[in-house]
């Protein structure tokens, strides 16, 4: 069923400049639609503006995965399934493919996109956590040109990002050389449910970056010097910015953040 009102505007441009033009013409009420796996259920429940939808689904070339100049670039509309199966992702950032392959269920993975997930900025989202550990850069396009932001700077809070009106997340970039070791853990209740905790660790040379999602409004990212130091840092972050709901309250998420800190570091080091 369609969530749209009878008077709703739906546009599906073929190029990014046309997307920017449409966003400008429709004003702040415009809603960007990518795979729709988070957006459509919200619109169905009457959450958020739904009078003007701009779809990215038909923009040519926006789903491309490339390796150029030592950077792996993943186009915004690449689906989770495509990312999970892409040989370039497997070679350069296998942990990202692992994370993509565990999202939701097959139907969601076939439609959901990485750009959509990053722009949605939900706490605990698989991509936010793994991309944080991979120290990813978000590529943001707009009529004024392109800008880049570190993921940690882009995601401001729970479902809140630095995406400004008229802008579109066009790609995500990570280091194109495979890390020495990496691990990703997803702790969720049932198949298809959002994760309670996601954890990623990426080891490159002597540097270990840990990211824990789901216990704080945005991923907690730690440059790891020891397991104890990582545990303390994660715990301090959970205490400072707790996150939780009736089903998984903050104290439980905080404890699980610690458990998964240890487990993901062990797995990455194994």
């Amino acid at each position: 069923m369609s969530p749209l009102t009878a008077e709703a505007v739906f546009v599906a441009p073929r190029t990014l400049p046309e997307v920017y033009t449409a966003l400008e013409a429709l004003g702040p009420a415009a809603t960007l639609l990518s795979g729709g796996m988070s957006l459509m259920p919200m619109l169905n429940r009457g959450i958020g503006p739904r009078d003007a939808i701009v779809s990215l689904g038909r923009v040519d070339g926006l789903a491309e995965v490339t390796l150029r100049g030592g950077r792996l670039s993943i186009g915004a509309t690449a689906t989770h399934t495509a990312i999970a199966r892409h040989p370039l992702v497997a070679r350069s950032a296998g942990v990202l493919a692992t994370a993509a392959g565990g999202i939701g269920d097959l139907q969601v993975r076939n439609r959901g996109t990485i750009g959509g997930a990053v722009a949605h900025g939900n706490a605990g989202a698989d991509y936010l956590t793994v991309l944080s550990a991979l120290e990813a850069t978000v590529v943001i396009g707009g009529s004024a040109g392109e800008r880049r932001a570190a993921l940690g700077d882009f995601v401001l809070g729970l479902r809140s990002t630095d995406l400004r009106h008229g802008e579109v997340v066009t790609a995500v970039e990570v280091d194109g050389s495979a890390p020495d070791a990496a691990a990703f853990l997803r702790y969720h209740r049932v198949q298809g449910a959002a994760p309670t905790i996601t954890a990623a660790a990426v080891i490159r040379d002597d540097r270990t970056v840990l990211a824990i999602g789901g216990a704080t409004p945005t991923p907690t990212v730690v440059r790891v010097s020891s397991v104890e130091q990582a545990l303390a840092a994660v715990d301090a972050a959970c205490a400072a910015n707790p996150l939780g709901d009736a089903h998984n309250p903050p104290d439980y998420r905080r404890a699980m953040a610690a458990v998964h800190t240890r487990r993901v570091l062990e797995e990455a080091a194994a």
């Binding site: 429940r45 209740r189 049932v190 198949q191 298809g192 449910a193 959002a194 709901d245 089903h247």
Partner: peptide, 16 residues
Amino acid sequence: PQNLTLREYTLPGMRE
């Protein structure tokens, strides 16, 4: 109510 969708009402599926 705190369960507005099946994301919160975690119904077991085949995996479970």
